[in-house]
Each structure stands twice: as C-alpha cells, then as structure tokens.
Design a protein around this nucleic acid. Structure first.
Length: 152
DNA sequence: GCCAACGTTGGC
DNA sequence: GCCAACGTTGGC
C-alpha cells in the first residue's frame, strides 16, 4: 500500500465534486513524471491526499483511494479538449490515468500550515519550485498530515 | 494579475 | 545535443 498526493484546482474539480460523483478518472495530467507515477507505481487501494491548488487558501482538502489503474485518458484523442495530444496514437496512447474514489473530506489543512511542520520538510509539495501534480508521500508524512486534522 | 521556477520545443 | 525562446504551474 502506497501513499500519494494529487493536485486539483477546486474551480475545475474539488473534493466536494468527488464526494458527489463518488469516483473519477484523473484525466488531464500532461507531465511525464506525474504520468509515470500513475502508470508504473499506483496500485488499486493506494491512498491519496486530495490537494486544492490555485485556491484561496491552497491546501489538503480530503482523502481519496485509487480504484482502477491503467486507464487511457480519453482527452488526448478529443480534438476539442485543451488536453488533446495530436502526437498520441490510439494503439499506443501516451497518457494513462488512474481512477480515484472518494474517501473523506477533511477540514482544509492549509499549505502554510504544512510548511511549518519540520516532519514534512522533505515533501516536494512544500519545496520551492516544485510543480509536480502527482507525487509520492511517505507513510510517516501521511500519518503526520492526518494527525494535524485534530489541531486545526 | 504577476512572475519565479521549471518543462518543452525547435532551430541549428 | 545545445540552449534560447516559449509555455505552464501555482503561490502570492
């Protein structure tokens, strides 16, 4: 069982949207490192911190669980989508995604709080300049984050 | 809306 | 294969 953090802009898709929809394909990722984590390392049952980026304030908003892996992101073949990729071929799709399902909504744990935690200083999330939208989380970091829930 | 940091593209 | 130009991310 592995732990992850995945970013989403709540104006586009929030933890509340996931709560309503129950599960969703994590489409639109167009970064190779993020794709590789989804394609090569995520397993059904892995747990995910759902992070709200480009939000006021940004922070961790809930928990999700990986419910399917190895799915083809359909937007790469949709010419009307901003995620259309003309170089990708249907018989060898470039962009694979996972599906995640809702687990729980958390009281928002703001980014500036996460930055104050020495135990979290190695998370790419809190390091300057990291734009990765899918990243691994160590079990110790996961436990620390969820323990903050009671201190907000 | 700004812009630093970083990834990608394309000319050579 | 280098690297300048350009595009994107995402906090502020």
């Amino acid at each position: 069982l592995n732990y992850w953090l995945m970013k989403s802009e709540p104006d586009v898709f929030s933890i509340q949207d996931l709560k309503k929809k129950k599960r969703t394909g994590w489409d639109g990722v167009r970064n190779y490192q993020a794709r590789n984590y989804m394609r090569d390392q995520m397993k059904v049952g892995d747990l995910v911190l759902f992070y709200h980026s480009n939000a006021e304030p940004p922070g961790i908003a809930g928990v999700a669980k990986v419910s399917a892996v190895g799915l083809v992101d359909p937007l790469q073949f949709d010419k009307k989508s901003e995620y259309y990729d003309p170089k990708s071929k249907p018989d060898a799709p470039t962009w694979l995604m996972v599906e995640v399902e809702f687990v729980e909504e958390l009281p928002l744990i703001p980014l500036d709080r996460l930055k104050k935690e020495p135990a979290l200083k190695d998370m790419p999330l809190v390091q300057k300049g990291t734009r990765l939208s899918v990243m691994p989380v160590a079990k110790k970091e996961w436990d620390h984050v969820l323990a903050l829930k009671g201190t907000l």
